[in-house]
């Protein structure tokens, strides 16, 4: 049985964007602009860190220039971006100018060698950089990226909201598959009628139903058939009893 394919995109041709709930506190202005000025269909959910998903393959991080320039953020930045690099074919970073507080004279940003080397490493790792003056421009860039991806046939075409306990439990199971993002899990949820159907599907069917790359589908296929090592299970059960 072939998985049912995606229906038409969200109403009135507007683009769909998923937003992590951690983006809200710092992004009220941006979210309002995305919805009202750009007519985007924005859905807030809990992703694994604060970023946006604008298509089946693209994640966007929003960082301030000073975030990028601060050496003490290095470890977290590497962790966040390398995890996105694992889950998405394309990763963008919107670098936003720091907002000067009201009444404060804005100081020009001082580039450091560290900042330049970070920019260089990001670019050389294939991460796309976009430059923004503030929330309003960032919203425009996010909408532009989502539209561009939509034109390339990569737009998110399934409903963003998941209703019902069973479907939420299923989504969580799918999200625990290796290197699977929220958008892949949503695609699988909508394109397979039962979990067993996904589990018994070919690599091709998983690729099509998940709207994902071949290698990602192969990884899922392999994971679902992977036989756990009996000594691993023995150790796990021992550890469980002792604790």
């Amino acid at each position: 049985e072939a998985p049912s394919m995606n229906g038409p995109p969200s109403p009135s041709g507007s683009v769909s964007i998923l937003v992590d709930s951690r983006c809200i506190s710092s992004g009220v202005e941006l979210m309002t602009s995305l919805r009202q000025r750009h007519g985007a269909n924005v859905h807030v959910c809990s992703l694994d860190s604060s970023y946006f998903i604008v298509s089946n393959r693209m994640a966007v991080e929003r960082l301030s220039q000073s975030d990028l320039a601060a050496m003490q953020n290095r470890k977290r930045l590497v962790e966040r971006l390398s995890s996105l690099q694992g889950m998405f074919e394309r990763v963008c970073v919107i670098v936003e100018k720091d907002r000067s507080k009201q009444g404060e004279v804005s100081r020009p940003f001082q580039r450091t060698r560290y900042y330049d080397s970070t920019i260089a490493a990001l670019v050389r790792a294939g991460i796309r950089l976009l430059w923004s003056d503030g929330a309003e421009e960032s919203a425009g860039l996010l909408a532009d990226l989502a539209k561009l991806e939509h034109r390339k046939g990569q737009g998110i075409a399934v409903p963003l909201e998941v209703k019902g306990q069973r479907r939420q439990q299923t989504l969580q199971l799918y999200q625990s598959l290796p290197w699977i993002s929220h958008v892949h899990a949503l695609n699988l949820l909508h394109n397979f009628s039962t979990i067993a159907q996904l589990i018994n599907s070919s690599v091709e069917a998983i690729q099509k139903g998940g709207c994902m790359s071949r290698s990602r589908a192969e990884e899922i296929y392999r994971c679902l058939r992977y036989s756990c090592d009996s000594s691993f299970l023995l150790n796990t059960s021992k550890a469980g009893k002792n604790s």
């Binding site: 290796p178 994971c223 756990c228 691993f232």
Partner: peptide
């Protein structure tokens, strides 16, 4: 450090975590 690496996650613990879902 930002370059994409090929995955080498332990499928044993991933599978165990999935079953607990």
């Amino acid at each position: 450090p930002f370059r994409r690496r090929t995955s080498c996650r332990l499928l044993d613990s991933i599978t165990l975590a999935m079953v607990q879902q």
